[in-house]
């Protein structure tokens, strides 16, 4: 799992590359929650290079969403592949997350 960070204006973009699973979820959770603690409250998670996600990945996203909500921040997801989107539908994550095809659209959501 590779984690890339980029700042665009007030928005922090975190790109995840590889598999968000039992092996990587703890590290990703720690890094994302640390960003929120440091004051990053507009977060875009770019999944365009993410190939796989299990329920441990969904758990990380739920933690991040709850923590962003606590600080009245904004969170958007971008670039989910079809298989991951299918898992989102089964978990009914599509109704609680803002999901965009591209990173640019997700950034716009967080700026507004």
């Amino acid at each position: 799992m590779e984690i890339k960070e980029e700042k665009r204006g007030k928005v922090k973009i975190v790109g995840l590359r590889g598999r968000l699973d039992a092996n990587s979820s703890q590290r990703v959770e720690k890094q994302l929650l640390a960003l929120i603690n440091e004051g990053e409250d507009r977060l875009v998670l770019d999944f365009s290079e993410l190939t796989y996600m299990s329920s441990l990945g969904l758990r990380v996203l739920m933690m991040v969403a709850k923590n962003i909500k606590k600080v009245n921040g904004k969170l958007a997801l971008a670039g989910l592949n079809d298989h991951i989107y299918e898992i989102f539908k089964i978990a009914q994550f599509t109704s609680i997350f803002s999901i965009y095809p591209s990173c640019n659209e997700a950034v716009t959501h967080c700026v507004d």
Binding site: S55, L56, L58, R59, A65, K66, K69, I90, I96
Partner: peptide, 21 residues
Amino acid sequence: LDRPLEQRSVGGLGLHLVREL
């Protein structure tokens, strides 16, 4: 799964996915 974000549990989805798939 119908609860709003604040009330949803962070875990418990694994077996649900297995059942559905």
